[in-house]
Design a protein around this nucleic acid. Sequence first.
DNA 1: CGTAGTGTTGAATAAGGTCAAGCATTGTGG
DNA 2: CCACAATGCTTGACCTTATTCAACACTACG
Lengths: 230, 230
Amino acid sequence: MHYEIPAPSIPQLRRIPPFDLLADGALHRLLSGSKLIRAERGEILAQAQDVATSIHIVLDGEVRCVLLSPSGNEKLLRLVGAGDLYGEEAALLGRHYMATVQAQRQTRLLVVPVAAFRHAMAETAAFAQAITMRLAAAAYELMAHLQLCVQLNSTQRVAQYLAQLAPEDAERWEIHLSSDKQTIAAQLNLTPETFSRVLSRFAREGLIRTEGRRRVVLDKLSQLRNCAAQ
Amino acid sequence: MHYEIPAPSIPQLRRIPPFDLLADGALHRLLSGSKLIRAERGEILAQAQDVATSIHIVLDGEVRCVLLSPSGNEKLLRLVGAGDLYGEEAALLGRHYMATVQAQRQTRLLVVPVAAFRHAMAETAAFAQAITMRLAAAAYELMAHLQLCVQLNSTQRVAQYLAQLAPEDAERWEIHLSSDKQTIAAQLNLTPETFSRVLSRFAREGLIRTEGRRRVVLDKLSQLRNCAAQ
DNA sequence: CGTAGTGTTGAATAAGGTCAAGCATTGTGG
DNA sequence: CCACAATGCTTGACCTTATTCAACACTACG
């Protein structure tokens, strides 16, 4: 990490929910013990097994939370972009991280000690409530993740992933992939090879067309949805 | 469900955390809209896809939360015993359940409408904080679950499961399985057959001995731990 | 003693992963 | 603008792993 300076006042933070709920004084107190750090692509920001002592807020850039297996296999849990935060669960519980956190590209983060965070929650009920809802949403997302990865086969996973990127009622939709295919494969807990094979099978069956590296045309969304829910 | 009556005052609930944090008045208000229901073994208490409108507290008995796949496959998420509750995430978010909930045996539950629950949280900060910590713990558990089911192979999963039932420093330990082997297999996202095969391989290699149906002697815990973390 | 529920074992199968080769796309420096 | 490297993507052959199906054994309980 390139530099680490106190961050007593970050006007940027005012606009990032849930920190917009804090009054000036509360925000200042929260930030008085915080540090601003910068990380380059690939840098490790938190190791699984480290005890979490702070909450990290991504100001700009992007970080990836991955689960590492003993055999070196990695599974992408989520991408955290600007304005988002991570580490609440582990830090609030005072346990070690489950995931390893790595900068995806050059990233600036705010590191808030958990004590200050807890204090802000005690001080501002609306803030505490927002955090509670975030945690509920996180648990909910994880259940969805578990269902996707544990229960569905590769075809269903890919179909579901593609279908959910289009509006509910559409039959044809053109999408631009938000990351490269390896990353998407990792989110779906597939190898790039398997992901590629499923896509080309869908293409052969006329359900989709891939144009270039990141453009996919979903031609038969109803069939795709059917594929996912079968 | 056999009967459904108002439950304005349940002395039992005073002792169940986090409800012990509520003052008399708050507890009464929470319960005034609640219902007491009884379910027989096998009864479905909540379907995935139902919108969650209440939090369920298990007074006695046991329920299982399972993820159902389109193909009918089921994965056990957790068992909820007396004094525990479920449905907070979905109900607080106002979304549908991810899991299907089924009574494992005869069970009495308290059904608390989410509005009353939210009101109690707003009214009593300590209660809200306890709920927040529960949600953090739930998210944390789910990540552990995800790591176990997605990343480890069957051998590692079983080894890890067995090893964690013994104290950290022991080398030999005798355990009594808390449920039947099918249920444990479901928790580990394995078929009963695969689970049985792994156990008998461990037995053949002298790492464990199974005595009767529910008794397992872990003879070489260090090797077992090694097996899990490899 | 018989039955239902539970656990074990084997053989066949299918699904994905791994390895390796080659093609395509993007970006860079001359 | 082109050559080239680097990276990402695709495809095929093969292999590992766990599931499925089926038969059978064990246990508990009436």
